[in-house]
Every structure is written in structure tokens, then in C-alpha cells.
Write a protein that binds this DNA or RNA. Structure first.
Lengths: 145, 145
DNA sequence: ATAAAAAGGTTGACTTTGTCAACCTTTTTA
DNA sequence: TAAAAAGGTTGACAAAGTCAACCTTTTTAT
């Protein structure tokens, strides 16, 4: 089993990155939106008109939980729902103007945090970092759904 | 601001890796121990005799929350506490035999999951993956405390 | 054509997870 | 030596997430 030592190293990276993401998330908590909500806003933004079940599939979130989050976002007027014409079971979700704005605010805050993280790097290091990240994604992407 | 496009790419990786870790965590939920508990067991295992405040520092977890988790782990007889000789405020925590065993079980389950993730890779790809991970850690580590 | 099954969502009840402040004890600092 | 700080514990609470029941619409099988 040649993977033995390597899984250990992968786990070390996972711990490292879990911590890092934890740090990045903390500021989200200061912004009245949870990580889940931010991810959902992201999916709606990129999906334009997306159904709840699309989000469930992408984020692997419980549908009851999602339903409640969407209801909250709707009450805050960040999203709108409308019935799909083709299928009366599905509701199509999209961001309102306010929703887009909040989404961008979250992005900016997140950018700032990441900026702080990489502030000491020069351009070469930054390019390296991103290349490594992309390499990891392509290596792992194949193995997933 | 040359970081602009790059933060975007970093965020893409963060989303990717958040999803991946989410997948890896799900099995933890099937094992009656939470991610936090697993991380705490890990810290106690590697720290041998560690204080609660050490864990708080490492994992940035609330001390009340930690106290309760430790109490639970103690009731399950996975850890033991004893007063520090040098400082009567601190309690030193260590794993019991059962605790070590559970820790290894969690590790094995986790290894299995990671094994499934990388099952289609050949040795070269696997080495590449780990090299990329290590490179990211060294690039980012400097920027953090 | 139609009954059964499946899919999209919502809701209620509940558990887990995490937060916050007050508090006690011991140690450190001024 | 009094005040402040550090290590932990506890109670009260809020947030996050889970689970099953349910309703409506669509699909599938006969």
C-alpha cells in the first residue's frame, strides 16, 4: 500500500487548510451572513436563475435547511422566487439588486482577507501559489463525480 | 492592484477545497465524533500532555465549548485530566488507551476516504499532488503567525 | 387513462454546535 | 499585598443542521 505515508501528508494539508479556511470564515461571522448563506448567494449569482434542488446538488445541503435559508434571504429581499413555467414544482431563484450588492460586499471583504494573507508575497510567489492550487484541482477533479 | 484576479482564483480553490473537506467530513458524522472532537483528539495525541489553553490557541475554539467537549471525552474515558504540578490552574490532558484506539480508528476511516479519493492516481500524480500541497503550505505558512 | 412512484419544496420538532458572560481559583504583576 | 490576568467551569442562549411528515406537481408503469 504505497499510499500510506501519502495520505498522512494529505491529511496534514487538510488540517492546514481547514485552519486557514476557518480564519477566513471568521470575518464572515462579523458580516451577519453565514458561510452557507455566502455560498448560496454565490451559487445564485453564478447560476442566474437556479432552482433550490440545483443548490442542494451543488452544496449537498439539506433541503429543509436550504428552504429556510432561502426564506430568510427572500425576507431580506436579497433574492426573488418565481415559479418555473416548464415545471410547476420548481421555483427559480435569482438575486435582487440588493442581493447582488450584498454578494459583492461579501466578495470584497473576502478579497481583503485574502489580500492580507498574501500581502508579503511577490508576484512570482503568487503565481506559484495559484499554479499549485490549479494543479491540485485538476489532479483531484478527475476523481470526483 | 495586481492581486485582483488572483484572489478570485484563490477563492475558487477555497470553494473547491471547502467542498472536498465537506465530503471528507461527512463520514466523520457517521462515526459519532464531530470534526472538532477529532481535531481535539489529534492535538491531544500529538501533544501528549497538553493543556486546554494550548488547544484553545491551536484550534481557536471557545473555552467554554472546549471545556464541555473535554468533559464529554472524559466521561467516555478517552482522555484523562490531571492537575499540573507547576501551575495549579492548568489541567493536563492526555489520551487513555481507549482514546488512542479511537484516534487510530478515526485515522483509518479518514485514510480510507482519502484513499478512495486518490484511487485512480498513479504514483507520479500522487507525488505531484503532495508536492503542490507542501508548496502551498510553505508559501502560506510564512504569512501566518 | 390512471394509479403509484418520484421529485421539488415547506414545515415542525428536534439535536448538535457554538457563543457569551459570569464566576471561581490560582498565578502574576505593579 | 491588592489588583489584574490566566486557566477552567457553568448556565443561558443563539445558530446551524437534521429528520420525517406532508403537500403539490410531474413522471413512470401498467
Amino acid at each position: 500500500m504505497y499510499t500510506c505515508k501519502r495520505t498522512h501528508e494529505i491529511r496534514a494539508f487538510n488540517r492546514f487548510y481547514t485552519d486557514l479556511l476557518g480564519l477566513l470564515d471568521t470575518h464572515l461571522l462579523e458580516s451577519e451572513y453565514s458561510l452557507a448563506e455566502a455560498r448560496i448567494l454565490y451559487e445564485i449569482f453564478t447560476g442566474r436563475e437556479i432552482s433550490a434542488s440545483d443548490i442542494i446538488q451543488k452544496l449537498k445541503v439539506d433541503k429543509g435547511y436550504l428552504s429556510r435559508i432561502l426564506k430568510k434571504l427572500e425576507k431580506q429581499e436579497l433574492i426573488t422566487k418565481k415559479l418555473s413555467k416548464g415545471d410547476a414544482r420548481v421555483t427559480l431563484i435569482s438575486l435582487t439588486g440588493d442581493g447582488v450588492e450584498v454578494f459583492h460586499q461579501l466578495n470584497n471583504a473576502s478579497d481583503k482577507q485574502i489580500g492580507a494573507l498574501i500581502t508579503e508575497m511577490n508576484i512570482t510567489q503568487l503565481d506559484d501559489l495559484i499554479n499549485h492550487m490549479n494543479a491540485i484541482m485538476t489532479l483531484l477533479q478527475k476523481s470526483r463525480d
